[in-house]
């Protein structure tokens, strides 16, 4: 079992003929993802890595019954492509690009809600149900099946932590990257709800960072509604207030979003917070035992 996606999920790649699009199509196919088509306006009829290319998402959905789509489209054109996917009936939309304007992101999320679709990102590495389906750009070798669900706001840091788990022979059910922007689709609570329901997931790892209140809200949800153990790691302990640490959302403003407030909220919800990324596997092992 896994959440959101599995080996049957029919995946489309928007922007498949670009550098990133074609490279990651190859990587996802190697991982075993069921990629059924690509979209690149004006390039219909071509093939990339043996995958048929269509001119529009509607055409691809008609011919290939695609259910999910991943976007490799430059930020200024991402809104158009995302709205096209939603209008054509795509139910899982993964937005890889960074620098999508905030107002565009809000427009996309409002339409996704209307179409009852799930949006992952923007500014995400995507999501993977280990061993079954990867819709994203993460390095294949670290994502092996096992009992731990992982949800993260950041990319490379999530690889680091999943890498530590893999090294300790602990695999993952599903790993979800929420994205580093201020407005993103899935949030911690959405994913925690799914992990709570998923019989294969025994323990959850939450990778958060300073800024905003997402970790505090997740803590409240864990306290009220989760029976499964959760382990966390949070980045930004040493970050000074008022400085944006790379991610649009990673900033301590007006005394809110501090490391201390997040640790306190998570601890109060019974979540152990690892003080180093490498300490996550030990904590997970105590929960799995």
């Amino acid at each position: 079992m896994s959440i959101y996606i599995n080996d049957k999920t029919r995946v489309l790649v928007q922007g498949i003929t670009g550098n990133q699009g074609s490279f990651h199509t190859g990587q996802m196919l190697k991982y075993g993802t069921n990629i059924v088509g690509g979209v690149s306006p004006g390039k219909g009829g071509q093939e990339v890595e043996g995958v048929p290319v269509y001119n529009t998402v509607f055409e691809a959905v008609e011919n290939e019954q695609a259910e999910a789509s991943i976007l490799f489209i430059p930020a200024p054109f991402a809104k158009d492509a995302a709205l096209e996917a939603l209008a054509a009936g795509i139910k899982i939309l993964v937005l890889i690009p960074e620098h999508i304007p905030l107002q565009d992101a809000m427009d996309i999320m409002a339409q996704a809600k209307r179409h009852e679709a799930v949006v992952v990102g923007p500014n995400t590495f995507g999501l993977v149900s280990s061993g079954a389906c990867k819709i994203g750009i993460m390095p294949n070798q670290y994502f092996v099946p096992g009992p731990v669900g992982v949800v993260s706001r950041s990319g490379t840091l999530c690889y680091e932590i999943v890498g530590h788990l893999t090294e300790s022979k602990i695999g993952t059910t599903t790993v979800v990257g929420l994205g580093g922007d201020r407005v993103v689709g899935l949030d911690f609570i959405d994913v925690l709800e799914q992990f709570e329901k998923d019989p294969e997931t025994k323990t959850v790892v939450l990778v958060g960072e300073i800024g905003g209140s997402a970790e505090e809200e997740a803590a409240a949800y864990i306290k009220s509604s989760m029976s499964k153990p959760v382990v966390a790691y949070l980045a930004g302990k040493s970050a000074p207030p008022g400085k944006r640490m790379g991610h649009a959302g990673a900033i301590i403003e007006r005394g809110r979003g501090t490391f201390e407030s997040k640790v306190e909220a998570l601890n109060a919800a019974g979540v152990d917070v690892a003080d180093l990324p490498g300490k996550v596997p030990e904590l997970v092992k105590t929960k799995l035992a």
Partner: peptide, 27 residues
């Protein structure tokens, strides 16, 4: 990556050093 850069700064502090900057040169 922003997250891992932050985590690196935190770890520098954890081991008793002090970071001179945050620099994420992206993916």
């Amino acid at each position: 990556g922003a997250g891992i850069t932050m985590a690196t700064l935190d770890m520098v502090q954890h081991y008793g050093g002090s970071p001179a900057n945050f620099l994420d040169f992206g993916g």
